[in-house]
Design a protein around this nucleic acid. Structure first.
Length: 327
DNA sequence: ACTCGAATAT
DNA sequence: CATATTCGAG
């Protein structure tokens, strides 16, 4: 059982958070300000800390720095403040995640993974994250393995990072490497299907942020992503998956709104609804990508995707319409 | 080249 | 059944 410390000066938020965490069997301790948090950390051991960003006695960022440096624990920040600087600042300082209030129970279900990951890697020296346009891809290997009926082709790029060790053939030394799975293709016999791995999706999001929305068309994104084997068509489909123009805020299932003429094929919105990758359960949303999209949503800006100007609205599994209209 | 949405695979 | 990816078309 993972032990979590939750910090928030807002009593209501704190109790909601506690209830949500208990739902997923976390052992929860709650405190209402940063000083209490620090003394609590001093006499009890925790796996993870959830903290609000804005508090009276000390702000969440300072607390975060303290926790990471002195107690070496992973921190998840929580705030209603969705300004990009705020979110990015938290991340830059080492927060594992930035959750936007109101926090839903589902948001907290898998946070144990951060605690687990933290324990595994905190003793390993980590290299700076690879740059999207950088030359961190030092070698490419291809692995074929059989998994049931599937023929899985893995194109694996090694980059200096912190996940596991890899024997370097040329020097005979063990290097610290992270295996980044960019291209994972399932060969089912009838056709091949690309899997949007977390790494590939991250690279996709980073590419869009780097290019800027006005130029974020499939061809450009593909070029910046620079992943061998990825096609323009893959990117186009994923981009389409990312945003869906609709006035129907509650369009959350590609099947439910199938109209009568749809002959029950049940997919009037294959690229919309729950398939929306910004909030999909299979593709993690990076806080920076979230903040950009959120900002655009808030200001009702027009995002130029492709050759059309449309108001893109984001919704999906982990967000409800109350959350969208509240701000 | 782009996007939509039907078709198809998981 | 719900969701994810491909693909034919405009």
């Amino acid at each position: 059982m993972y032990s979590v410390l939750a910090v928030d000066d807002d009593r209501t938020c704190l109790f909601i958070m506690k209830a949500c965490l208990k739902k997923w069997n976390y052992q929860v301790t709650i405190v209402k300000n940063a000083n209490e948090a620090l003394s609590m950390l001093g006499n009890k051991s925790f796996d993870l800390v959830l903290t609000d960003v804005h508090m009276p006695d000390m702000n969440g960022f300072e607390l975060q720095r303290c926790i990471i440096q002195e107690f070496s624990l992973p921190v998840i920040l929580i705030s209603a403040d969705t300004r990009a600087e705020v979110m990015c600042n938290g991340l830059k300082n080492g927060a594992q995640r930035f959750l936007v209030k109101p926090v839903m129970a589902d948001d907290l279900k898998d946070i144990w993974q951060f605690a687990k990951w933290w324990k595994r890697t905190k003793n390993i020296i980590s290299a700076p994250p690879s740059q999207i346009s950088g030359s961190s891809q030092e070698s490419v290997t291809m692995v074929d393995s059989h998994n049931g009926n599937y023929n899985i082709s893995l194109y694996v790029f090694f980059s200096l990072a912190s996940e596991s060790t890899h024997l370097d053939n040329t020097t005979g030394k063990n290097l610290q490497v992270r295996v980044v799975i960019y291209l994972l293709v399932f060969n089912t016999g009838k056709n091949t299907r690309l899997v949007w791995t977390w790494d590939l999706h991250s690279r996709f999001v980073e590419a869009i942020l780097l290019i800027g929305y006005h130029r974020a068309v499939p061809t450009n994104i593909l070029e910046v992503m620079n992943v061998e084997g990825l096609t323009r068509r893959h990117v186009a489909s994923h981009l389409q998956n990312l945003s869906y123009t609709t006035n129907q805020m509650d369009y959350s299932d590609q099947n439910t709104l199938a109209d009568e003429n749809d002959n029950n094929t049940g997919n009037s919105g294959a690229h919309g609804g729950a398939n929306n990758i910004m909030f999909s359960s299979t593709n993690n949303v990076t806080p920076s990508s979230f903040s950009h999209f959120w900002e655009n949503f808030q200001s009702k800006q027009s995002i130029n995707v492709g050759d059309k100007n449309s108001n893109y609205i984001f919704y999906g599994n982990n967000i409800n319409t109350d959350q969208l209209t509240q701000v």
